[in-house]
């Protein structure tokens, strides 16, 4: 992705500076073409982002449309409320648990399956489609089957017999979040396999040949050629998996009936929904949103730094 950004900047500036008439660029029509999308981004991204920050610093509540109400500036009050709220803290902790399970599992499984898939010819299309089918299916539909599978008398417990956890998976405060993490890993894996498959096409074949000449086992070749070769994709996979964690709502909401036993599987977005819309404190909810946005940006940045520096 990084080289693409360079492409964008290449031809323009010198030309623009030389000819003051080209204030709008060589092809100002581009502004017209891009305008609807730019307006859309401004309306559903930039403005709401600003509004979220504004709301989070004010005593904001829902009022009848058109009513003039005072919404005094309260400084960091909402942030204090958020950070001292045990429900919020628990939801962040839950996402932490989710990420610890989901991210490594996703990276390892998708890379291994993608590199295996890359070497077989037989049934390749069938395998690829089976992997991404969960990704393209609605969480709501898949949750229904998982409820059936992981319910008290579900097939998983029938299989385990006396080994079945008690209380059962989805109502067990220690297991609710891991099951959610497992569900999301399973659902998203196909997409990440596709990303790695694309990245694998860029690993020079000569490197594998060289490794093979050196007598490296396929395991060594995998560790020394494949893993470093797909590093940019790994950065992307880790960032996207982290974002999925920050976004979590539907899966814990439906799979563990709200937020699991004692809020064991609440997610920040779920708490935002509860506080902002159910309990009518959008200011507190907006503060959670702002914290999440900052966290996601920070984690993305750190990931890039960590994984891209050799």
């Amino acid at each position: 992705m990084t080289s693409e950004t360079k492409v964008v900047d290449k031809p323009r500036p010198a030309v623009a500076r030389r000819r003051p008439g080209r204030l709008l660029g060589l092809q100002p029509l581009g502004i017209v073409f891009a305008a609807p999308y730019a307006v859309f981004l401004a309306a559903v991204f930039a403005y709401p982002l600003g509004l979220a920050v504004w709301i989070s610093f004010h005593d904001y509540f829902f009022a009848a449309p058109g009513a003039q109400v005072a919404r005094p500036f309260v400084g960091l009050e909402n942030y204090k409320t958020v950070l001292s709220d045990p429900a919020v803290r628990r939801s962040f902790l839950n996402v932490g648990k989710f990420l610890v399970i989901n991210v490594p599992l996703t990276v390892v499984l998708s890379l291994v399956l993608a590199s295996m898939l890359n070497t077989v010819l037989r049934a390749r299309a069938f395998l690829r489609v089976s992997y991404y089918i969960p990704y393209v299916t609605a969480s709501v539909a898949l949750v229904a089957v998982w409820l059936f599978l992981f319910g008290m008398d579900g097939m998983v417990n029938q299989l385990l017999g006396p080994l079945a956890p008690d209380p059962s998976w989805l109502v067990n405060s220690g297991l609710a979040m891991p099951v959610v993490a497992l569900f999301v890993t399973w659902k998203q894996l196909g997409f990440f396999i596709l990303l790695y498959l694309a990245a694998l096409q860029n690993v020079p074949k000569e490197l594998y040949e060289a490794a093979s000449v050196d007598g490296a086992t396929s395991y060594r070749a995998f560790m020394n050629v494949t893993v470093p070769g797909v590093r940019p994709a790994t950065v992307l996979v880790v960032i996207l998996a982290t974002i999925t964690g920050a976004n979590l709502f539907t899966e814990p909401y439906l799979l563990t009936n709200g937020g699991g036993p004692d809020g064991a599987s609440t997610s920040p977005v779920f708490v935002m929904y509860q506080k902002g819309i159910e309990q009518g404190t959008p200011d507190v909810a907006a503060a959670i949103g702002v914290i999440l946005v900052i966290a996601v940006l920070l984690i993305s940045l750190i990931n890039r730094r960590l994984l891209e520096s050799d």
Binding site: M1, V44, F45, A46, P48, G276, A285, G289
Partner: peptide, 20 residues
């Protein structure tokens, strides 16, 4: 901004978008 939008998903902005 297009790239940024893919990193900051809309769920996190659900409150202001709901308000709007």
């Amino acid at each position: 901004v297009m790239l940024l939008v893919q990193i900051v998903p809309f769920q996190l902005l659900i409150i202001p978008i709901y308000v709007m």
